[in-house]
Design a protein around this nucleic acid. Structure first.
Lengths: 153, 153
DNA sequence: GGTGAAAGAATGGAAGC
DNA sequence: GCTTCCATTCTTTCACC
């Protein structure tokens, strides 16, 4: 087992990133290889750490969570970022936290039910965190694309 | 089949969002319900449009794609956003595109191999798009969190 | 490193409660 | 609307190529 991927691996990833629940037998049939090969390739890619797991895609709007907001956060001192991130992770509406360089220090994504819920979280759970100097918000009007990198040769 | 979720549904989601490939029989065992119930609940949640699919989690860094960058984009005219988004979607390094309100008009996420690759994409594939007035970039130093909303009562 | 088959496990309906 | 049952399909390993 060498750690270099070929077109077959990319094809497997391409099918499974579109639907992670596709049975391996079906993947095998599409690519005209044996089910055992799909298993071996997937195990290789898991062992490499390339495939770290699988998750469901959820449409939060169906649950009445219609607000998606990005926040660019400035810190009072950059060294404080670990504590700030710890606090941000406690807020259940926050789903992504990135430590970034550039205009902001921390960049997060959060979901709320509506603008009232958003304001409440923003004022009571975000702005109250010690070490946050300022915040700029971007409300997502529409998500137009979400996909994976296609590594194909 | 009513369209209201209960704690059992949330528990199923909680397990499957952590690992979408968990067999339903195992989900059933953990929750001490029958496999048929897991199936019925999942079908209900798919039919509702809450569960839209499943995807693999990939660690791009393992493939040598070590750069994750967010771009906040200003447009020359806000009405042009559909065309700009069309062009952004053609760039294979771009994995997410959001139309937003606030300081920027469009917000995207992209992956590249390194800073050289990034600069090339930035200058040749992003800045050349007609309708883009300006761009601010945020390089992700570290991703600290990625998860789903927990709807539990 | 791939194949294909075989034993065991999971799936996804149907019928009854 | 949940459960049990069961025929079908999938998983996973392994001897062989």
């Amino acid at each position: 087992m060498k750690n270099k991927l070929d077109q077959v691996d990319f094809d497997i990833l391409s099918i499974l990133t579109q639907d992670a629940q596709t049975p391996y037998t079906e993947v095998a049939k599409k690519l005209i290889i044996s089910p055992g090969t799909v298993h071996a390739r997937m195990r290789k890619m898991r062992d490499m750490g390339l495939v770290t797991g699988a998750t469901l895609n959820l449409d939060y709007a169906v649950m009445g969570w219609k607000f998606t907001v990005f926040l660019g956060i400035y810190l009072t001192e950059n060294t404080r970022y670990k504590q700030v991130i710890q606090h941000l992770m406690q807020v259940k509406e926050v789903v992504k936290v990135h430590h970034v360089t550039g205009k902001y220090d921390v960049f997060i994504k959060l979901h709320t039910k509506d603008s009232i819920h958003y304001r409440e979280i923003y004022q009571n759970s975000i702005l109250t965190i010690k070490g946050i100097k300022g915040v700029e918000s971007f409300i997502s009007v529409e998500q137009n694309l979400t996909r994976h990198i296609d590594f194909s040769i």
